[in-house]
Each structure stands twice: as C-alpha cells, then as structure tokens.
C-alpha cells in the first residue's frame, strides 16, 4: 500500500513537472493541478497511512485514529489551491485575450518592444 501511494505521488509529480515545462499556459495549468495532487497526497501521507480509522472521536471505545493534523492542513491546502488555480487561470485568460498569444515565455521581440 505504501508503495502504491509513494509511486502515485511520484507519477503525479513527474507528470506535473513535465507539463509545467511546456510552453503554453494551458498545459502549465494542468501540470500545476497534477503537482498539487501530488503535493497534497504527500502532505496527507506525513500522517502515515491507515484504513478504516477516520479521525472522528468514538465516545464508546478506545481506538486508534488517523492523524488529524495533516488532514486539517491538507483540507485548507485543497481550498487554497483552488484559489491559486482560479487566479492563474484568470491571468492566463486575460493574457491570452490581451495578447492573443498563450505562450508563457517572453520572446525577445516583446522584450525589446518594452524597452523602446
């Protein structure tokens, strides 16, 4: 099980980084999303893996629980990554509409144009 989770994190990270290294905004955003999944699972996994033990207190029995702390952190991380994705998508869209180009890198011609 640990191997599965670790390898899944690796796969998501690798795919995310590959897409982040593309030249257009859309794949980069996809890459960021994949990387976010990887990072969130990694953070969550710092609580170590356990099945069937949700961190809901049981009043009647003394049982083990999953580590609640990473879960709380990851919960906020998921919501914040939504905010981040939304802003990045918006910037990408605004940039594309303004320049009619979704290349993420500044080309030398535009830079020279700014200098002039």
């Amino acid at each position: 099980m640990e191997l599965l989770v670790a390898s899944a994190i690796g796969v998501l990270t690798a795919a995310g980084i590959y897409l982040i290294l593309r030249r257009r905004t859309f794949p980069v955003i996809l890459g960021l999303s994949l990387l976010t999944y990887g990072v969130n699972i990694f953070l969550f996994a710092t609580g170590r893996l356990i099945t069937g033990a949700p961190p809901i207190l049981n009043k009647y029995a003394d049982i083990t629980y999953a580590d609640p702390l990473p879960q709380a952190l990851v919960l906020t991380a998921i919501v914040i990554s939504f905010g981040m994705t939304a802003v990045v998508v918006m910037i990408a869209l605004a940039a594309y509409l303004s320049a009619r180009d979704d290349n993420i890198n500044m080309t030398n011609t535009t830079e020279a144009g700014e200098e002039a």
Partner: peptide, 24 residues
Amino acid sequence: RDGGIAVAAGLGIAALAYAMLMRD
C-alpha cells in the same frame, strides 16, 4: 530533456515519500 528532469524529480519524490511512509 524535460522528460528526464520530470522523471528524476518524480523518482526522487516517490523515494522520499516511500522512505517516510515506512518509518515512524
């Protein structure tokens, strides 16, 4: 080249995650 970078990073993070998961 990008694929190489990505795979190396992925392997690294997977190894890190695995090492962490197997220890307290």
